[in-house]
Write a protein that binds this DNA or RNA. Structure first.
Lengths: 339, 339
DNA sequence: ATAGAAAACGGGAACGTTACCACTTTCGAC
DNA sequence: GTCGAAAGTGGTAACGTTCCCGTTTTCTAT
């Protein structure tokens, strides 16, 4: 029903080929160009992308696989991916694993069916090494966001979980804290291990003996898990600071402290990984490591585009640095200025 | 490079047509079916969606236009849309207006280029009536989320802003409040007017004379705007309750109250439109009207699918009811039980 | 003016499907 | 055992592009 390139050709008194050439920036005569332009305008023509995709063997689409699109931590990242894709002339389609629980490898079919030219896995759950292997062996343009433990390396964008946590805990130590509790991330999440190592290294570097009683593993990264874990810690041992592997658990922990009659940061200082809008509005505002999600998204796209263009052979892992944002949960601003 | 339907046919010793019929559930002989199945398995065949889309004149894609994908209010809605689309055999592509500031009507080109079969506009900024007219006149399958003031009606899904606010403010009145301030939404947002009318009607119904001094219009729906507006109100008049047209502004308002030495809810009760994760963790937790975003998303998809299938002629506006969630900002739980 | 190069143009095949149609085979009923 | 219907099958033309290649026109330099 909508006009085709042939309609334009007829209307402009020329041929399909010439119209196609005009559309793709080839060399066409001055008045033919004008005639074509006019025809396009009058008939309201827009090229059929599906025909283009068929003949070009490209979908100009980037697939983005997520654990759960409703998780709002994705907001900024999706925005970065989307903007980056748009800039490079690609369109995105998102795939949530959540309802289907499909394996990561099953998304390789999207290549076979020519639905996508490249795939970004922005999944934060721990990845199955066998699956990563399959992805790597496929030889398709794939970029991962969030670390993986596969043997074959895949291009990856990740926040530097280890050094970020290291910096944060070192900051706490610098504030004079010695007994620092840690809420480790759930074992199902890929970032948990590195963040924990960051904590351990910071303590070690400061010459503070590690103590198992100070560490509590979260069942998941929710407010409630943080609350429960903090209560266990409080019942078990004493500490003057607490570092949490994400912000939600820190909210829960803060509540547990306050219920126990402890003041923040007077009695216990609190810091967390993951910044989000909440952190500014809690009482007190929470010191956090802010992840540059938007930038991570656009970096992943850039890398993917390079691979799709065949411009690079090396698979690189890009680590972006989280930024330590000091707020009152680790000391009043006055005290910060003194330091 | 990947196998085509012809490869399968050759490998199975049959013809393209038969393979196609097999794939589309037509009637094929028992052993031919088995041979085809085996060929597909062995060669790892997946149908080329672009060829299908070309010949079927359908993209099996729903386009979703958003103001800004990074706005995390969208999380649950996207999830609902995505899940609904998946359920009906559609794929989604999202389009953010934000970086490009494209007009809504410009997305009609997506139909011409056959990129989408239907479009959902989940934009919350006030819509230009002329644009809505263009959308309506296009005759394409389009569903709007969020109200519009166009003359030609388009199928719409929206939360009932008016009756929600009415219920909320009436609740405050029932708690004994008479002087209730209102933070009206920015004039650029489509929901602002209805929410304001909800407030006005509630006051009117209770026989409370309206007073201009109690209303302050927000410049935008941010925490800071809420803070500024609340300070103006405090400087100007007295009130025992405040209703805000969204949650962010309520956070700002709460901070302004607390800075002025007022206790919540002791001196001023606060309630807001829009629930989000923050509301539970603020101090005190905030009474809100929770919008069923996920359901709104899936409703929009259902409606769109019906239209695309030509199963319906009538354009309907679906209003979903927001749910009033009582938290401590409008009274302690004890006090609530008394009531 | 003319040769040669460069620019402009059009015909037709190809991309991987589906849909239509005509043909062959199978099957059940009398 | 034959006939008719039903089931199964394959050839071929679309779908709307791009790309290749051969032809025609225009331009430039001598």
């Amino acid at each position: 029903m909508p006009p085709t390139i042939l309609d334009i050709a007829l209307h402009a008194g020329t041929s399909k080929s010439t119209v196609s050439r005009y559309l793709n920036g080839g060399s066409v005569g001055k008045d033919t160009a004008a005639a074509i332009e006019r025809a396009i305008e009058e008939l309201g023509y827009a090229p059929n992308v599906n025909a283009r995709r068929l003949v070009s063997h490209k979908s100009h689409t980037i697939g983005v696989v997520l654990d759960d699109i409703s998780d709002y931590i994705y907001g900024a990242m999706l925005s970065g991916i989307q903007a980056g894709a748009h800039q490079h002339g690609y369109v995105c389609t998102f795939f949530s694993r959540r309802p289907t629980e499909a394996t990561e490898a099953s998304y390789l079919d999207l290549f076979k069916s020519r639905q996508v030219d490249g795939l970004i896995f922005a999944t934060f759950r721990k990845r199955n090494p066998a699956e990563v292997m399959l992805l790597a062996q496929s030889g398709q343009p794939i970029v991962l966001i969030g670390e993986h433990s596969g043997v074959l390396r895949l291009p990856t964008v990740d926040v530097d979980n280890l050094s970020g946590t290291l910096e944060e805990v070192t900051y706490l130590i610098g504030q004079g804290h010695r007994r620092i509790a840690y809420l480790a991330g759930p074992s199902g999440m890929s970032a948990s291990a590195s963040r924990l190592r960051g904590y351990e290294q910071a303590m070690e570097l400061a010459g503070i003996a590690s103590e198992a009683a100070l560490m509590e593993r979260l069942e998941n990264w929710t407010v409630d898990a943080g609350y429960q874990a903090a209560r266990k810690l409080l019942a078990r041992t004493k500490f003057t600071a607490l570092a949490a592997s994400n912000s939600y658990s820190a909210f829960g922990a803060a509540r547990a402290m306050q219920e126990a009659g402890l003041s923040i940061p007077g009695d216990v200082a609190i810091a967390a990984f993951d910044d989000d809008i909440l952190c500014t509005y809690t009482n007190p505002p929470l010191t956090t490591l802010s992840q540059p999600f938007s930038r991570m998204g656009s970096l992943a796209v850039s890398q993917l585009v390079e691979i799709m263009r065949g411009e690079t052979e090396v698979t690189s892992t890009v680590y972006v640095q989280p930024k330590l944002i000091l707020r009152e949960s680790t000391g009043t601003l006055d005290r910060l200025k003194e330091a």
